[in-house]
Amino acid sequence: MPVWGWILIAAIVVIAVLAIIVSRSMRTRKRTERLKGRFGPEYERTVGQVGEQSAAEDELAAREQKREKLEIVPLSTEAQAKYANSWRTVQIEFVDNPSSAVAAADRLVIQVMRDRGYPIDDFDQRAADISVDHPKVVENYRTAHGIYLLQERGDVGTEDQREAFVHYRALFEKLLETDENKDKPKEART
């Protein structure tokens, strides 16, 4: 075979390898952009926690796949009203007994999650599952739960309890949302 033939074959191989590299790079970049868009601050948190971007992205993708297998359902109008009323009661209780109200808020959030179809056995798994649907408030949930655990040991003051309560409320409100009332002004919601 003449030299120009070998050069042509080598050029074709190099072009094919470059095309594969560019294609993989574009897929990786699209995956990163999609996950960043979906998870927002949870993306950065997971990368920081896992330490490697591709491993963190694998974890986030696994969360999405697990979430797809769950049958998450909206609450009925009656259940929404019942839970909203329960929240108002817990909120009133906060004035007289903040620690009891924080514990009640934790239990109420778990009840709503259970009724919506989220598994509730393990806190870390609950947070991971919630991060797929509500990535902007999952950190609030982690913070609130952390304060709740400190409270169980008697290590928090009223300001921390107030912070936990506000964080629980942020997740609670997201859990009560349905596609119908998502875009309504807050005052118009149940």
Rank of each mutant, 00 (worst) to 15 (best):
F39N: 07
F39V: 06
G40E: 09
G40P: 02
P41V: 06
P41Y: 02
Y43I: 00
Y43T: 02
E44N: 12
R45T: 04
T46D: 08
T46G: 11
V47R: 05
G48R: 03
Q49Y: 10
V50C: 09
G51R: 01
G51H: 02
Q53K: 13
Q53M: 14
S54D: 13
S54A: 13
S54W: 08
A55W: 09
D58N: 15
D58G: 14
E59V: 14
E59Y: 11
A61V: 00
A61K: 02
R63V: 04
K66F: 15
K66T: 09
R67N: 11
E68C: 11
E68V: 09
K69Y: 03
L70R: 07
E71H: 12
I72E: 14
P74M: 07
L75H: 04
S76D: 03
S76C: 11
E78T: 00
A79I: 01
Y83V: 07
A84N: 10
A84P: 00
N85Y: 00
N85V: 00
S86F: 01
W87E: 05
R88F: 08
T89I: 15
V90M: 05
V90S: 14
Q91K: 10
E93P: 01
V95N: 14
D96T: 12
N97G: 06
S99Y: 02
S100Q: 08
S100L: 13
S100D: 11
S100Y: 05
A103L: 09
A103M: 10
A105I: 00
D106W: 00
D106S: 11
L108W: 08
L108A: 08
I110F: 00
I110N: 03
Q111R: 01
M113H: 00
D115E: 12
R116Q: 10
R116D: 07
R116M: 06
R116Y: 00
G117V: 06
Y118C: 04
Y118K: 05
I120D: 09
A127I: 03
A127E: 07
A128W: 02
D129M: 05
D129K: 01
